[in-house]
Design a protein around this nucleic acid. Sequence first.
DNA 1: ACCTGAACACCGTTCAAGT
DNA 2: ACCTGAACACCGTTCAAGT
Lengths: 244, 244
Amino acid sequence: LDWVVTQRVEANPDPGSSQWWAQRSARPSRPRQGGLSTRRIIDAAIEVLTESGLDGLTVRAVSERLGTSSGSLYRHIASREELLVLVGDDCLGAVRLGEHGFSWRAGIETLMRELRRVLLEHPLPPVTAIGHVGRGPNAIKLVDAALRVFLDAGMSERDATFATTAVLDFVFGAVSFQRGPKGRGVTGSMQHEYREAVLAIASDSELTGLRDAGRTFLAASADDVFFRGAEILLDGIALRLPRH
Amino acid sequence: LDWVVTQRVEANPDPGSSQWWAQRSARPSRPRQGGLSTRRIIDAAIEVLTESGLDGLTVRAVSERLGTSSGSLYRHIASREELLVLVGDDCLGAVRLGEHGFSWRAGIETLMRELRRVLLEHPLPPVTAIGHVGRGPNAIKLVDAALRVFLDAGMSERDATFATTAVLDFVFGAVSFQRGPKGRGVTGSMQHEYREAVLAIASDSELTGLRDAGRTFLAASADDVFFRGAEILLDGIALRLPRH
DNA sequence: ACCTGAACACCGTTCAAGT
DNA sequence: ACCTGAACACCGTTCAAGT
């Protein structure tokens, strides 16, 4: 009873939330011959995103690319934020889920690597949109693929669940750290200056962890951080498998 | 030589990048008796953030709270993005790094729990700012604390490095997923409808992983996902320790 | 039924003019 | 040297009027 009331009140759920996706999947799309469509808007948005970055991804820029007015888009999307959510999930669709027959470990490693590749490719899902993905149809496919691998390896449903979320959490976190703010890649220039600044601070203070291992930490490559971190996680997962 | 040129050209590094932090730490602050200061601006920004959320955190709103004009803030910050970065790192300062003497595992567990608590407390560092933190002074303290624990447990510098990054990546990723978009918490309402929608899709398609384990997956609480995921990761880390 | 284009209410940022 | 406040160039979004 109480629940029904809540459902009524929450008429406009946040874009990207599970409520929003649920409502959306229940609504039929209305494509129009030759006219605008959500699909065309998303495609144009991704083009703008690739060319102009996240800041350049404005409603106006997308409408201009489509040769129409900005107001027209609001017949297919409710807000810019909705557009970001749709673009974010759409990007996840590029992850190649594939090739059965490998070991569970090779399968998950491939999934992690693929997801990372796709996320690093677009300047969107990063920073701004990490919370914007995760509940859409393409995110669901990722979850499904990971669950399948773990179940096939003999894991319990609960262990497969937590292994799946741990893997996804790790990949998204790692990608977010690797990028600079706004989703742009981190350039290597002046990295040296930063290293020296951090090490100088460390040696002057009680940051003994950094004093002792800071040089190693700051020299680690993004690839090392990702693949060695993945190994640690996969080792932990392996302990949950029956024939370990 | 080439490096010097790069340094010259990169005169305005992205806020939040290591270059930016390095430049910033080298620049002296100029506090003014009774006047504006970066410190006061950050404090006001966090108040606005808490009250109005990330969207409400505008330069104008912060200046209004400080009883001044929006233009005045630009004497202390170069842009809104800089402000977001500063706020993001400042929030991390609330993490209580503490209490030595525990086992490495208890120490890291506490650090993870604390970091999660702080991140979930503020509506900023999430979504928008996950890429905005990680290189500032308070992020550095987190890294230092984790490195110290691992080194004390007998880990090599490299293993300690990758264990540290894996832990931070996981926590940031888990927090980002737990939030809805824009950093707001996920309400529970209509979750049921989403579950049913996903399960309906799964049973109609080839998403056999979700078909078999979807109910368990979708019923998992955020706390379970976090703590069980942390266990997996810590088990993997434990394998890197000498007296395992 | 859909699109247009003009308008509205905001933004972040700049900069002359003040003090 | 710092602050003001007005202005500029944008936004996202709405909505009458068209077709």
